[in-house]
Design a binder for these strands. Structure first.
Length: 418
RNA sequence: GGAGAGGUGGCGGAGUGGUCGAUCGCGUCGGUCUCGAAAACCGAAGUACUCGCAAGGGUACCGUGGGUUCGAAUCCCACCCUCUCCGCCA
């Protein structure tokens, strides 16, 4: 949600900012809608003022037993006038709700992922002396990854894992969650996986991206990421400045309808309707969010490094940055089997965009007035994709998979999946 | 799912049609007193929108949304949530 005051102050700046998102100039239209809204509010309030006066007079006169018919007639007319406003929604609010966040100045221009900029890389893609297999080839050969069974149970874009691979998936989630909770200062949090529409609106999934969500018969939604419940913890709250920052982490399933991605990544478990993810969310003072963004991304990078993966940090260009984000770093991991870099984490600074939507503020230690918080979220990291990366990176010529050292305690000491 | 009770300002808790944005208590902040503190006393304190250069006005908000009325915290309807009991259930 945008600050309408900022738009009034600097409409040209707003248009420039939206142009980076590929949007035509909107400020003139929005200011017109804003003026219309204010005009309506003023007329409505004037009528209410008069109505309150009349009601007060009528009350006084009635107590004296005097005639109030004429005043009541005027009040009745006023009510008809007011009833006309009653059901009107303000178009300006609906329009603002669908406009994406303003990008940070250091976000590079660009149209799509081809224009993203690699910032740094950890390690070099391994060059094994055999032809590396993709994760689904390895998993099916081991008899521990079963797509046919998943299709029978649920349909396309689901996976059944068995035995050591199922345990490896669990070990990854447990280890990452514990790492963030014990060494990175995030509070481990268990959250609902079904949330209401207000929560989805707060983080920006609604109203624009409903088709990406699974909706239940009672009007709730399955979370597409734990970012939604974790960030909405501060919805409609006013927190004291001294309590900040809040850092939360959760291991949760994520449900995505993947509408519009038909035909993409259909093999294997790269793109699923359901996957586990460890999420990090930070709630900060405005002046702290940029540094927190770097810190959070570093926490995700540590996960990849400790798993012995090859990765790089990419800053998303203007055209690839998500709706609610002002700036996003993606972490891409090298998948030897696929021979490609694939996103495994995404860390975003949403600044005050989500906070405005969810009315999340802080009470400053000094001075008056409440200030909108800044919110950040990042995967730390996607568990399903981490499983893929571990399998493809640590596969051996015989099709077995070495378990990374850090996971062995979580695997009952198992060193190799064969 | 059934029956009942209830949702009021940071908290507790009054208020059942008209000067109620809301008595009071606690807590918070400022002050007086004190060497200092406590106690006591005095005072200040909600959020948002809107008009205005400003000073300063106005409007809305008593779970949410409708309705009745000249006028709603108060009456009616629906929904949400909490608590108690019963049933069912991981």
């Amino acid at each position: 949600m945008h600050d309408i005051r900022a738009l009034r102050t600097d409409p040209a700046g707003f248009d420039t900012a939206m142009a980076r998102r590929g949007l035509a100039p909107l400020s003139a239209e929005l200011l017109g809608l804003d003026a219309a809204r204010r005009d309506q509010v003023t007329r409505q309030q004037d009528a209410l003022t008069r109505r309150n006066e009349l009601a007060k007079q009528i009350g006084t006169l009635k107590r004296k037993g005097e005639d109030t018919a004429a005043l009541e007639d005027e009040a009745r007319e006023l009510r008809l006038f007011l009833d006309a406003f009653e059901t009107q929604r303000f178009e300006i609010d609906d329009r603002l709700a669908t406009l994406p966040n303003i990008l940070d100045p250091d976000v590079p221009d660009g149209r799509d992922e081809a224009d993203n900029v690699v910032l740094h890389q950890h390690g070099e893609p391994p060059r094994p002396n055999f032809a590396p297999k993709q994760h689904f080839e390895l998993g099916e050969a081991l008899g521990l990854m079963d797509f046919a069974a998943a299709t029978k149970l649920a349909g396309a874009r689901f996976t059944v894992l068995r035995g050591a691979l199922a345990r490896l998936e669990r070990a990854l989630g447990q280890w990452m969650l514990t790492l963030h909770a014990t060494e990175h200062g995030y509070t481990e949090t268990a959250v609902p996986y079904l949330v209401n529409a207000a929560s989805m609106y707060g983080t920006g999934q609604l109203p624009k991206f409903e088709e990406d969500l699974f909706k239940t018969t009672d009007g709730r939604y399955l979370i597409p990421t734990a970012e939604v419940p974790l960030t909405n913890l501060v919805r409609d709250e006013i927190v004291p400045e001294a309590a900040l920052p809040f850092r939360y982490t959760a291991l949760s399933p994520s449900f995505r309808s993947e509408a519009g991605s038909a035909g993409r990544d259909t093999r294997g478990m790269l793109r699923q309707h359901q996957f586990h993810k460890v999420e990090m969310v930070s709630i900060t003072r405005p002046e702290d969010s940029a540094a927190e963004h770097e810190r959070m991304t570093g926490c995700a990078e540590r996960v990849l490094t400790e798993l012995g993966l090859t990765w790089r940090r990419v800053v998303l260009c203007a055209g690839d940055t998500g709706f609610s984000a002002a700036k996003t770093y993606d972490l891409e991991v090298w998948l030897p089997g696929q021979g490609a870099w694939r996103e495994i984490s995404s860390c975003s600074n949403c600044r005050d965009f989500q906070a405005r939507r969810m009315n999340a503020r802080m009470k400053p230690a000094e001075g008056k007035g409440n200030i909108f918080l800044h919110t950040l979220n990042g995967s730390g990291v996607a568990v399903g994709r981490a499983l893929i990366a571990v399998m493809e990176t640590h596969q051996q010529a015989d099709g077995s998979i070495l378990v990374p050292e850090v996971l062995r305690p979580w695997m009952g000491g198992l060193e190799r999946i064969a």
